[in-house]
Design a protein around this nucleic acid. Structure first.
Lengths: 150, 150
DNA sequence: GACATAAGGTTGATAGTGTCAACTATAATT
DNA sequence: AATTATAGTTGACACTATCAACCTTATGTC
């Protein structure tokens, strides 16, 4: 598809990925929206995370993170744990249900990524990731110049 | 950022691109949401397009396309033209206001893409586009197997 | 210790995105 | 002529995302 813009390519890919993921998640009989999935995975991956650190890593408004956390807590997938060093803040921990869900989500995402990449070589994918991350980092330097990688 | 998943990379890039585009569009004093922008650009680029062909190319629900078209018509940026060959369908044409807006949008998008790609070589970008389009095409073969490229 | 400023998180409000279902008018097929 | 399919529309709803204002707590300054 010659001449397709970078922006259009990103839109198409985003939509393709989300559609495949939604299908895979439905097969796992999980019913979480994609934002909650990303947050839950992030919590499993980084112990002692806070709403603030999640918002920073995902570059989302803290209000949105708070709402998603509330839904995940309501669903029994994570819990808040007081941060003894800062009374304003709390750590977020997955419950055993949460961890179980993430196992299914990992399988779903593996399938989706497998479908996306089935006509590609490993070094193409590696370059794609490098280029993609370079672009996101370039943007971050403009949009939030004083916030580095936590 | 080692170990970031493909999905997470796509999310980050999508968000980075949208944030830069929003900033650039604000500078142009345009106030269109991103979906309307994409549709308007598509209409300018392909004469005799219909709601159906736009929905297919963007892989969006026709309901969503119809609503965005209605907003664009309401804003005076496009018009509907009857399709003499099919009474159900109509072609979509930009107005002179619409074409003018697209000139500003092109400038905004050029700026956004320039910021994203400033730390990259041209062949990296070319490979990124090739890989991205290959992935989107792979997904399309699964999600809508009988719909090829119009 | 008192006061001012900043930060972590919350809630309200709102706009935009996206999908599914049901419908109408028209086209295509039998 | 009857049936099936399609283009487009509208209703309904969930999800995403941002901005603003607020409260509680932390930090910094005097």
């Amino acid at each position: 598809m010659p001449g397709i813009s970078l922006g259009e390519a990103v839109h198409r890919l985003m939509h393709a990925y989300k559609s495949l993921l939604r299908e895979a998640i439905a097969k796992q009989e999980i019913e979480l929206p994609v934002t909650q999935i990303r947050i839950l995975k992030g919590i499993c991956r980084s112990p002692r995370g806070t709403a603030q650190s999640i918002a920073q890593r995902m570059q989302r408004d803290k209000a949105q993170i708070t709402r998603a956390l509330n839904d995940l807590i309501g669903a029994g997938l994570i819990v808040r744990v007081d941060n003894p060093a800062d009374g304003r803040s709390h750590f977020l921990k997955p419950t055993s249900s949460g961890r179980k869900i993430v196992a299914g989500l990992d399988a779903a995402e593996d399938w989706a990524v497998q479908q996306l990449t089935r006509n590609l070589q490993a070094d193409d994918i590696a370059l794609f990731l490098r280029v993609s991350n370079t672009m996101a980092d370039s943007a971050r330097q403009i949009l939030a110049p004083d916030k580095g990688e936590p």
